[in-house]
Design a protein around this nucleic acid. Structure first.
Lengths: 120, 120
DNA sequence: CAGTATCCTTTATGATACTG
DNA sequence: CAGTATCATAAAGGATACTG
């Protein structure tokens, strides 16, 4: 097979990038990299993440083999989400991104203010 | 000020993450980290990226201080886009993500096939 | 608790045509 | 060449209600 190249539209790695370059995925893997967490706890951990989008995102992550889902048959049911070994390798890249965003948000806000002031 | 925390909806770093966790931004900074590039060359370099979305994305990146735009008054006009020092610090994180996507697309495809086969 | 289903609104993207 | 403007469509997301 040819080398994966995300710059080519049809390359599988492009699909992966599209899935993975997502705000909620970054935040979700950030939580799960630290601890196994239940559905509603994830909702509380990540402000602004709706139940619907959380549900979808987790399903995608599970399908991609990045997160695993464990159902514990209590009443009512308990569901635990954990990161997989593959997911953990991604999470470390994500954490870099997350920390970058936190470290540079001030500089970016300043750049935006400068830009907005420059045009009339 | 309090510590930036992207898990809080109102935190500026959340906005940054949202902007930056984007497929086109990853690919674009990947190109610009290597060389200053002109508008239409960027279009050709990144398959599937429309003129409209390229234009929008570049404008955002410029506003955020991650990319700089230089107009050269030839006829017709030439416009060169380069990465800024701030953008370069982000690009190195992005490259990690990009390479991860390329390195693991096969594993992910397999995980998806397994998942899809499992549910009937 | 951990979801799914539905409806409805808001965003994003695509195609096309036009300009300095 | 490097865009902008406009229109049309598709996709994403929020609110609400309901279920095992």
């Amino acid at each position: 097979m040819s080398a994966p190249n995300a710059y080519a539209a049809a390359c599988p790695s492009r699909l992966v990038l599209d899935r993975v370059a997502d705000k909620w995925t970054v935040l979700l893997l950030g939580v799960l990299a630290r601890r196994t967490t239940r559905f509603n706890q994830l909702r509380r951990d990540i402000e602004g993440l709706s139940q619907k989008v959380l549900s979808q995102t987790l399903k995608n992550l599970e399908r991609d083999g990045l997160v695993s889902r464990k159902v514990i048959p209590t009443v009512p049911v308990t569901v635990e989400y954990s990161i997989t070994p593959l997911g953990a390798t991604l999470a470390s890249k994500m954490e870099g991104l997350l920390r970058w965003a936190e470290a540079h948000s001030g500089e970016i806000a300043k750049a935006q203010a400068r830009y907005d002031a420059a045009d009339a």
